[in-house]
């Protein structure tokens, strides 16, 4: 008799505990749904309202990684790195497979923290399978190349630029090579005095994206260095026309990108 009593009491305790756990889970689910709704309705990035909404969302649902990340974004864009990092670190802690690449990319792009950014990107690369992996409008290997350039390791940078291009071609086909991939690799070859390789890449770049002024500009610089003045001038004139409205040039609203050109650069080259 006592055995049955103990058995029944244990079952009651077990089901009671399970019942409590289910209720807690349900409350958490509701809180996280509310957090998601606050996120959707927070308004413009960086506004006081959006920050209040995100604070509430995170308070309701502390595992809301997307909220932690978004709260930090305007701080990075406006120069408060401590506040940004505090929030993004939390997002990375909660969901490394989602936010580690973002932290790495931002460290390289915004802060020129090449060692820290590279470490994040390399760790992310081991966590996630498949290719290509894109972050911040570029292949992850392009950012690794920029990091290596910042660390003054041209050999490693070149290897990453190669990987960016080779991976795109192998996975998706040559038309999927990024809009600036040949350009960046060509510029590095130019700096390393591989003029034949640089010229081939600039021609690939122009063939891939003729309206990008940068390809013509750097080809013009190279031709001038090789003593081919008329051809150099033609390339630089084409760069000028494209830069001044008929085409495009590599730029970013937040930072100066590596090897970015300005109107003054083209004018100086044409003198």
């Amino acid at each position: 008799m006592e055995k049955w009593l103990i058995y029944c009491l244990s079952l009651s305790f077990l089901f009671g505990t399970c019942g409590q756990q289910t209720q807690q889970e349900a409350e958490l689910l509701l809180d996280c749904e509310l957090a998601e709704r606050l996120y959707t309705e927070m308004g413009s990035q960086g506004s006081a309202r959006s920050q209040h909404y995100l604070d509430s969302a995170i308070a309701l649902c502390p595992t809301f990684a997307k909220g932690w990340r978004e709260k930090g974004v305007p701080y990075l864009k406006r120069g408060d790195y401590a506040t940004w990092m505090k929030h993004l670190n939390k997002a990375v802690e909660l969901e490394p497979e989602t936010y580690l690449d973002i932290r790495g990319w931002c460290k390289v792009k915004f802060l020129h923290d090449y060692e820290g950014g590279l470490a994040d990107l390399q760790r992310y690369d081991t966590l996630i399978a498949g290719s290509p992996k894109m972050v911040g409008d570029f292949n992850i290997y392009t950012w690794m190349a920029f990091a290596k350039l910042g660390l003054q390791d041209s050999v490693a940078a070149m290897a990453y630029f190669d990987k960016t291009i080779d991976e795109a071609v192998a996975a998706l086909g040559p038309e999927w090579v990024g809009n600036y991939d040949y350009l960046y690799r060509g510029i590095l070859k130019l700096e390393l005095k591989d003029y034949k390789g640089a010229l081939a890449d600039f021609d690939r770049q122009i063939n891939h994206y003729e309206k990008l002024a940068d390809g013509h500009y750097y080809k013009g610089l190279l031709l001038a260095r090789l003593g081919k003045k008329e051809q150099a001038n033609a390339s630089l004139q084409r760069a000028k026309v494209l830069f001044n409205g008929e085409g495009y040039h590599a730029q970013d609203p937040y930072v100066e990108m590596p090897w970015q050109i300005y109107a003054e650069d083209i004018s100086r080259a044409l003198q």
Binding site: G46, S47, A48, P74, Y75, R78, G79, D80, T83
Partner: peptide, 9 residues
């Protein structure tokens, strides 16, 4: 941080 209802920064 936003202060007095102003935006970040």
């Amino acid at each position: 941080q936003p202060r007095q209802g102003h935006e970040v920064g």
